[in-house]
Write a protein that binds this DNA or RNA. Structure first.
Lengths: 265, 265
DNA sequence: GGCAGTCTCAAGCTCAGCTTGAAGGCAAGA
DNA sequence: TCTTGCCTTCAAGCTGAGCTTGAGACTGCC
């Protein structure tokens, strides 16, 4: 659980109060202070901040307990709620006003469930909205440990190693552990999916090289604007890059489908 | 005009510009001015305004034709697009930046059926229906005349000829006129979009050849099943093919984004 | 020719969603 | 107890998205 918070002070367990530690998780059951909460969320949500958490409370999205002295104390379920809020905001682009309603109406489910919530609602509701993140050129910055990635994607460790060997993915080494950003994680997920159909690691070089070629092409086209000192111009170029990537992907898909149609019929 | 689309709404009722235009509108074929468009959308979107429509164009979400004098002229497909934009904004709370990408990537579909339809059907059905014909290996069969395609996509005729020369698209000749299926039409649309950013026709060979290679790869993997006489097995193989294509496209997009991120700095 | 409709471009406006700073209180180790 | 760092509130400010407004000029149609 290495964190990358800008307001970093890095030390794993600055847990205030003890462990009444009933069970499995090393989570301090008795409630965490706002700073601890913030650090805990920083890896998944790099742009979290203490002031933001306070702001969310101000907006009636949270309501943690308080100590006698007025300190906020966040329980495990507060954490779940907060995580849900941040996910809805980041992935679904919902405004806080709407998130508040979703939560109030019990519609927002958290499929992550470390906490034993019985998950009464139909799964259909949960999967209704798809994840839209990770298709942006500007990286979010969140990092995930190898073990987390493996668990989430249910990928074969050998496959991951193979990918790393082929240079398809590239991890960051920190404190002897591999960390991956969101894109790498999704790449691993996609590759795992392909592997289920029998597409092996060696076939992926095809994909990689064509991606490289296309990237070079797009770069060439936008090179002048990208090199510009003018920040406005640069920002526009980055947006153009994203749009170009989206259109190019769409085009490639269409071409692929067309080819496959020939094959199929 | 001379479309052969089964879902054609050919009702040349030259009714006066009725403000309601509820469901099946009369086709003011030649394009509407911004004021007319605005009034036409006012019932479904009360907070629409002329300046807002212009703003959306400024943000690269629309690109209507112009008269010689500079007046904007909105076609029927412009209207569809605009309506989609407004719906995504109002119902899905998507920011314009994201809507732009959704549209560019062809992901945004227009399922109407607005008023009070409870949509009780399970999500599976909805998402299946949401899939557009042009991304399915089983062709819908609709064909469009060149002139219609040109008008709808606003493509440069020279570009289309170039694409045809490069073998990127292939028309069917019927009664001396070129006809294109839905996929080709979308390919032309995507290419036109790319052309706006300066990606020329000759660059598209890169895309084509990699599509060919990938198609060959997928074919190889599914060849036995595809050759099967058993119709069930064949159907499964076709489904697998579509899934593979979708995942492969996603993977390619991720790889491209990753490369672009390096480029972007 | 006249007049409603439209054009561009720059400036401004509003609101969501935070951030910052000041002035001070709480918790816990030395 | 003291000290140090984390925490508190509150008010003010900032930034970007998403438009609106106004000025001044042009278009298109009767």
């Amino acid at each position: 659980m290495a964190t990358m918070n800008p307001t970093d002070k890095q030390s794993p367990a600055t847990a205030p109060s003890n462990a009444s530690g009933s069970s499995d998780d090393s989570r301090p059951q008795k409630g965490m202070t706002i700073g601890v909460v913030c650090k805990g969320l920083a890896q998944e949500f790099p742009d979290i901040s203490i002031s933001k958490i306070r702001y969310l409370e101000d907006q009636k999205l949270l309501n943690p307990r308080r100590t006698a002295g007025g300190y906020r104390l966040y329980s495990a379920s507060d954490m779940v709620r907060l995580r849900t809020i941040l996910r809805l905001q980041r992935d679904e682009f919902l405004p806080l006003r709407v998130i508040r309603q979703e939560l109030a109406s019990g519609r927002a489910s958290d499929n992550d469930g470390k906490v034993g919530t019985p998950e009464t609602s139909p799964a259909a509701v949960a999967s209704k909205r798809k994840r839209r993140a990770s298709v942006s050129v500007t990286d979010g910055g969140a990092m995930y440990a190898l073990e987390d990635v493996l668990e989430e994607t249910r990928a074969d460790p050998a496959l991951v190693r193979e990918l790393e060997d082929y240079g398809v993915i590239k991890s960051e080494l920190r404190a002897g552990k591999h960390y991956y950003d969101e894109t790498e994680r999704e790449i691993i997920g996609a590759v795992t999916e392909l592997a289920r159909y029998g597409v092996g690691g060696r076939n992926l070089r095809v994909f990689r090289s064509s991606a490289d070629r296309e990237a070079a092409l797009l770069q060439q086209i936008l090179a002048p604007a990208l090199r510009s000192r003018n920040p406005e111009r640069r920002k526009e170029a980055l947006e153009a890059l994203e749009n170009l990537a989206a259109v190019a992907t769409h085009l490639k898909h269409l071409l692929l489908i067309r080819d496959l149609r020939k094959i199929a019929g």
